[in-house]
């Protein structure tokens, strides 16, 4: 592999790892805060799946870079400006409606995306894609069910779900914007074109929202910048908490 291609692959794997880790971190915040004990276990499973996925992507990036980094150097050693997750993942968990609507929007993207990734000509990415696809298929089933329950539940749950959709909508545009390294990898058959996933995603979301008596928000605004390290103000706090131990006691084994 050329240095250019391998550095693209490394950057791409890190970006996908960042998406998964940051979302996993937000999901894990529900521990001891969930609306029922059954839901505690369910949310923890989704969080664990995302953290596991992040470790796989980071592990692959480290292997490709072969510069002495490992999954923890990648996760705990970077500041906000070099984290490349999409912004939708870093938003605070909010109420249960916000978490589940966000999860649904992300899951509805992840399923076709991972299905495409499973067809990658890069064997490790293909393997990660395949495993993650099984998980995300289940996540989507759950999050879609919850969007329906909340949208078509009580007036209060409906209002909260609609508010969540309205607050999240502008962050979904970024899901379909490939960054430069990603575009090159797409040409090389390593990954699928994420822009091409938008129509199907729109359809799926529209169908679910409709069933849930929720309104699709206007495409009036969008906020992006995650892949360039231009984040919301939330990420700094998240990383400060997440990275504290490694920063306070650098270079130790845990």
């Amino acid at each position: 592999m050329s240095t250019g291609a391998s550095s693209d692959l490394c950057a791409y794997s890190i970006a996908l790892g960042d998406d998964a880790l940051i979302l996993g971190q937000r999901l894990a915040e529900w521990v001891s805060n969930a609306p029922s004990l059954e839901e505690e276990l369910a949310l923890a499973n989704v969080a664990l799946d995302h953290i596991g996925r992040a470790r796989m992507f980071y592990g692959h990036a480290a292997a490709v870079a072969a510069d002495g980094r490992d999954e923890d150097t990648i996760a705990f050693g970077r500041d906000t400006r070099t984290f490349t997750n999409l912004l939708i993942n870093e938003l605070p968990r909010g109420d249960f409606a916000f978490t589940m609507v966000r999860q649904f929007l992300v899951d509805a993207f992840n399923v076709p995306f991972l299905a495409a990734l499973a067809g990658s000509n890069e064997p490790t990415l293909a393997a990660i894609g395949e495993k993650a696809l099984k998980e995300s298929t289940y996540h989507l089933r759950r999050s879609r069910d919850w969007v329906q329950r909340l949208g078509d539940g009580t007036q209060e749950s409906h209002d909260r779900a609609q508010r969540a959709a309205d607050e999240l909508w502008g962050y979904t545009r970024e899901l379909f914007e490939p960054f430069a390294a990603e575009a090159r990898l797409t040409t090389g058959g390593v990954t699928a074109d994420r822009a091409a996933l938008q129509p199907l995603w729109r359809q799926q979301v529209a169908a679910t929202f409709d069933e849930a008596t929720l309104r699709i928000p206007e495409d009036a605004w969008s906020i992006r910048g995650g892949r360039d390290g231009v984040h919301t103000e939330h990420l700094g706090y998240l990383l400060a908490e997440m990275q504290f131990m490694q920063r306070a006691y650098p270079g130790q084994r845990w």
Binding site: S36, E38, L41, A42, N45, Y138, R142, D145, R149
Partner: peptide, 17 residues
């Protein structure tokens, strides 16, 4: 056992628990 509103939710929770 577990609590759920309907059989689909029960099945999903059973899988998780």
């Amino acid at each position: 056992s577990l609590h759920a509103e309907d059989s689909e939710q029960a099945l999903e929770y059973a899988r998780d628990v």
